[in-house]
């Protein structure tokens, strides 16, 4: 099942909320893969950087009617009128037409944070401090992903470093296409419950395309018409009903 990247892939995800146990593997694997620095001592939930954040969301009922799910929330890779793209004064946010991935270019970013305000999913983060690791850890950073500097915004880019590596491997093998399993973001790879399925939504035969159209699959804030490429699935009605609001709020 090979896909032609040049034929306009639309990479996306389906997250099964009924399978997610909130273990946090995806969050840490993401931070390691993308060289996201540990929290500065004063950092909080509002000022920390988590390209992928897992929100515990409850049904609001009292004990023991209480129920909860864990919602992994990363950049939703909006495919239409992408809010962060349209507000960026520096063209620091671009949508790759061949993959559909919304990329962030920190070197262009001025730190105005318009994109953070515009993002309805609160999936963008700002570097309030210098990226700092304990002495010696810097030698153990992933050499494929450049750390970002203080004063710029950043976000999930579906592990762009892995996409580049997969492209390079494919080219070395004389191929112009990326076979689907060759490119998997760290979160999907690390999920022990296999709750995150990643792939090309444009490939009708892919698991992700099939699951994105399955019963009980939904997208957050679909009413805004931004066409996110991250889908969620839950058999629980109360979970699907919350789709009209961001779990970050």
């Amino acid at each position: 099942m090979e896909q032609t990247e040049q034929s306009k892939s639309r990479y996306g995800m389906v997250v099964d909320l009924d399978k997610c146990t909130g273990c946090g593997d995806c969050v840490v694997a993401c931070a390691i893969e993308n060289n996201v620095a540990p929290a500065e001592q004063k950092a909080t939930e509002r000022t920390g950087i988590t390209w992928l954040r897992v929100y515990p969301v409850t049904n609001g009922e009292a004990f023991p009617a209480h129920d909860a799910v864990f919602v992994p929330m990363m950049c939703q890779q909006c495919g239409h009128h992408t809010p962060c793209v349209s507000v960026c004064p520096q063209n620091a946010v671009e949508v790759d037409p061949t993959t559909g991935i919304v990329g962030q270019i920190p070197q262009r970013c001025l730190g105005c944070r318009y994109c953070m305000t515009a993002c309805p999913f609160h999936a963008r983060y700002f570097n309030w401090w210098d990226p700092e690791w304990p002495a010696g850890t810097e030698a153990q950073l992933n050499p494929d992903v450049a750390p970002r500097m203080r004063g710029v915004a950043e976000k999930c880019n579906f592990c762009h470093g892995r996409l580049h590596a997969a492209r390079t491997r494919a080219a070395a093998e004389g191929k112009s296409n990326i076979a689907s399993p060759a490119y998997t973001p760290a979160c999907a790879e690390s999920c022990p419950a296999q709750a995150i399925v990643f792939g090309d939504l444009a490939d009708e035969s892919s698991d992700v395309a099939r699951l994105s159209k399955a019963h009980d699959t939904f997208r957050f804030l679909s009413k805004l018409g931004t066409e996110p490429k991250v889908y969620y699935h839950s058999a629980k009605e109360w979970v699907r009903k919350m789709a009209d609001q961001s779990p970050a709020v």
Partner: peptide, 26 residues
């Protein structure tokens, strides 16, 4: 635990931060 685990404890509330008391609203 590695400092980057702050993503779970400090920079989000996915895991309970040490020294916090979880109690029912009642």
């Amino acid at each position: 635990v590695a400092p980057v685990m702050s993503k779970l404890f400090q920079e989000s509330n996915l895991r309970a931060l040490g020294g916090r008391l979880h109690i029912n609203p009642a």
